[in-house]
Design a binder for these strands. Sequence first.
RNA 1: GGCUGCGUAGUUCAGCUGGUAGAACGUUCGAUUCACAUUCGAAAGGUCACAGGUUCGAGUCCUGUCGCAGCCACCA
Length: 886
Amino acid sequence: MLTKGAYDPVQEEPGILKYWLDGKLFKPEYHAQRGLLSEEEVKQDERETFCIINPPPNAYMRPHIGNVSGYAYQDVMLRFNRMLGKKVLGQPGKDHAGIQGEVVVEKIFIEKEGKGKLEMGRDEFYKKAYDHFINIMPRIMADEQRIGLSSDYDRNVFTLDPRIVDTILGTFIKMFQDKMVYKGVRIVNWDPKAKTTLADIDTERISRESELVYIKYPLIKNMVWALSFYDQQVLSMVRDSTKSIETRALNPEEKDRFFGNIKTGDLLIAVEKSGEGVHHVYKKAGNIEIYKNLEEAFIKVEWTKVFGRNLNSVQELRDVYESLKPGYADLIEKNGLIAIELLDLLEDDYISVATTRAETMLGDTAVTVNPADPRYSGLIGKQVLLPIVNRPIPIISSVRVDKEFGTGAVKLTPAHAYDDYVIMNEWNAQNPAKAVGYINIIDKEAKMAGPIPQKYLGLATEQCRQVVKADLGNLVYKTEKIEQSIMIGERSKAVVEQIMSSQWFLDVEKLKEPAIKAVEKGEVKIHPGYMTKKYLNWMNNLRDWPVSRSLWWGYRIPVWYKGEITETIDENGQIVQSIAGEKVVDINDAVNKGLAAVGITSPQEGWIQDNDVFDTWFSSGQWPYATLKANGLLEAFYPTQVMETAYDILELWVSRMIMLGIYHEGKAPFKDVYLHGLVKAPDGQKMSKSKNNVIEPDSVIEKYGADSLRLLYLVGNKAGAGYPVSYEKLEGYKRFLNKIWNASKFVMGIVGELDPNQKPDLNPLDIQQINKTIELSKKIGVQISKFRLGLAAEELYQMFWHEFCDLYLEQIKPRVYTRDREGNPINTSQDELKSMASAKWSVVYILKTYLKLLHPFVPFITERIWQEMPKIQGESATIMYEKWPE
RNA sequence: GGCUGCGUAGUUCAGCUGGUAGAACGUUCGAUUCACAUUCGAAAGGUCACAGGUUCGAGUCCUGUCGCAGCCACCA
């Protein structure tokens, strides 16, 4: 019996779950009457399929009110299509959540056992984390059930389930064979706290005040070298155009040609005019001789001017060096050679750059200007002397440089700034002869490293920034405060460093084309339609996808090495990889040399597996076919019909599913993408933990019931648009539930023992009402099919309350009562009795129709009432398997 | 800077392919021992941001302006 008085969803709802969860009823792919189908039978069932893969929530924490909103939309579609008689599957799953998951469980372990992952070791940590996730999962699943999501929980899968792992790794191996995978040194976002690389999306930006430092880089006109020999070796100095000085032995011919009868202790001076090739000119101190190509420029050099006087001995050379201004000369002692490198700078001629990261100047490899900038265009190709390290670097050009910002000239640090990295690549592609390189000077601890002066080694970047700034002295001529947005790890909140590192990449060229076409051709439709542009914009600008993450929690990359794989910064600042001590260029090189192999299992005893795991999106992107395959339902349900998720992961997740789905299965994994907006806090603010305005679903469900919450998500809302939680609305929806309850109670009260199988002659008034209801069914059906769930819910709300209750029920009251207010018998004539019978039968019919129409939206109350309704033959025990009215 | 969305009643928002404005909540007035006071009836309240244009007709299409939000890139 339906209880007297008001409907209490909080009391009633938990009991209703048993109709769907107990026994075999909650198997969406078959009707209750037909019993549990085996996988084989599912395949033989030829009904049209309808499948929604539920976006797997993070398995480590319970969802908030916004996280579960999607289930309401998914469930409306699942229940609607189930009622249409389709073979329906809602496929639930739980996500291991990559970095987030690892950080969260480690924290729990540290709290509980005082042991972090390093103390546990990889295997123990993984095992414990796995158990932990498996244990929490039922709790998360209960939240899904509590909101009424009618998915097939017996087929719930965890992302790290071995059945899924095989598929994910298999895809990587296939891609490797298809030459779509490579491992290469590239700039990455490095989180020094979490010790992992981060995809752009795993980072966020915060704004902070920062100091823009203007630095003068001296332009180089000529470079003068002073050399001295003081032993029997005859040496020469050769200047590399972009790197540092190197010495080498001269061959006899050169020796004779350039040096003749030079004796140890003689002083030589060499001049090289920068940017115009190498011209060697030598002088012998005291007795000047010119051996080759006397340059006009050289002639003009007055040695007394350069040195202040003539030099006659090594000691004098040293004395001169001591007296020179720092930054203008360098003393070089190498292989028995002593030399002063003198830089003949253009007097007071500088190119100025502005930077917020002064310390990275130690790794600069060029200065970049806009080719259309008249201030600098004449300087392109010239060299500047990088202060402190005294390394000559070229001035190059790029249209990416903003003429307006700073000085219009940019210091190029390709190893530590993404944009600089891009500029380097573009420049090198267009100017292979004048290619510039990168110099990595920050290590994975965010400390200074590599080929930089000793005093900076090991300093934290921020600390080093101050030291460098001080050391630059008056080369820093201006500083200004600016608002700068810096990248931090989304989870760790640590400042992200961009560094060069070796990473696994997916070449997306082959992946993206068909995924773009699928959407352009409408094979995959995105709702709301305008989001299609977002998708295409993203896809068209897609770059190769770094898929490795330095974590333990996830799918370990199925690549094996013969020995330890190491990554070091060499003396030139280059990242060098070696396996078992042997240098390798890339993965193909390593495989060819027999030092690495790709496969699920180790090729040989003692080989070491790659330490990294895959980016979670690499696995999430395979979720549709991986889950179905794990359940043996791939053939029966792939491709699915609808993907319903939040609009903010359209690019991250949906695009990957389309790409990988087409790659792996030849077809996009779904036909329609329905994107819902984000639920906001009551004040219209975005819900976030930091604002402390997060609402738990329980807090709402325990007061208003899950059905009310579903209506909040549904009524009057449209795809893609966010909306605030409104307690007034929730209150209103609870009243609506009460209205359904009381109307049903009233109907059951007046019809009494009516046998709904006995259909009486119907009064035209009732027929009219029945037709109206049928018309409504069609309308609602169309709206749901067109993803206008909000309109459908709103219309139902209106029609049920104001048409059915306020008008029709009031209308039949005088026809169905047997006594008037004074207690006198009424409605006793034949005609009146006929009208009464018609009204009673019709009102039951119409109420049932409404319950069915309402069921996808408010499943709990409609199921509860359905259980009490007098059934006719062929009607299902639970309303969820009833036929959609038509 | 690029892209996108939004700007409609006091509030939160609907309004699909263009046809003289809708819901919920709130407000005001009235009803009521009836399935439901978690009710019913009625009313007030909007030149649909602004300015142009297309059209017989525009909240709906186009152009521009202003304001708000989001996303992407950048911030060297």
